[in-house]
Design a protein around this nucleic acid. Sequence first.
DNA 1: AACAAAGT
DNA 2: ACTTTGTTG
Length: 326
Amino acid sequence: MGNADLRTLASLSDVSFDDVAGSVVAVDAHNWLYRYLTTTVKFTREDVYTTADGEEVANLVGIVQGLPKFFEHDLVPIFVFDGGVTELKDAEVSERRARREQAEELKREAEERGDALAASRLEARTQRLTETIQETSRELLELLDVPVVEAPAEGEAQASHMAKRGDADYVGSEDYDTLLFGAPYTLRQLTSKGDPELMDLDATLSDLEVTHEQLVDIAILCGTDFNDGLSGVGPKTALKEVKAHGDLWAVLEARDAYIENADRVRELFFDPPVTDDYEFDTDLSPDVEAARAFVTEEWGIPAEKVDRGFERIEESVVQTGLDQWT
DNA sequence: AACAAAGT
DNA sequence: ACTTTGTTG
């Protein structure tokens, strides 16, 4: 499972940070943290970020290094954290766990035969967002006055909802299913070097000449995080058949096929658990000294790992002039 | 998740 | 031509 199939269908364009300056981005926190977690861990020795209790807090370094990217381009990030996970995702979740455990096993073997290089490469694949990581991330973001929103379920669904309502200009995520959740504009590659990539829902629909409902049906036929698609059906075939038959049910009938939970997956994309109960102020005034103390004194991260990041945060935090949002 | 290679 | 699978990040 995986929804990279959607990449073939999505309308994507390169934009510059200047094009999006001054806007509010609802960031899928899980997605963003995971990217920094794996890259931070990959290029450094693990024990630097491990406390005496064995807690791994590389996320703190990731946040300090990653936030300047927003601030320096006059973007206000809103971090949207996941709530509970739908049981529809159980299969996907256990698959990810199995992959992680396999990577842990391979890493142990590499360590036993003294292959440090292989072990450190495998380390990145064993990362997961522990309770400690989620909690310390929230605390650090709060010290830096970066708004945090708690999603009832999927963070991507909540972020998309906020963008649909106009409380955010963009969703920030590497995932493609923000299209399915109805996010009008998604910014990708906010973590990597270079320009961001803009994914446009309306342009996607008009390019493909399908409705949003049909796009969801196409994705379900290919397979999503919440369901297995039909074997032998990828984006091209799914697009063709949905256009020919009208909707998912007609395609399944024509092929005499069945997709487990298809109705519930559809419902999840159209009407996911989201909340309007959030508020944030986009006029940020970070307490950099408190944040620095939290990272270096409370969690024992060596100061030189975060000095440059905090410096960039101090230099770049600008008054956006945008007023209170509710 | 992105890419290359293999399979239909 | 399109989808699946495997590898690596």
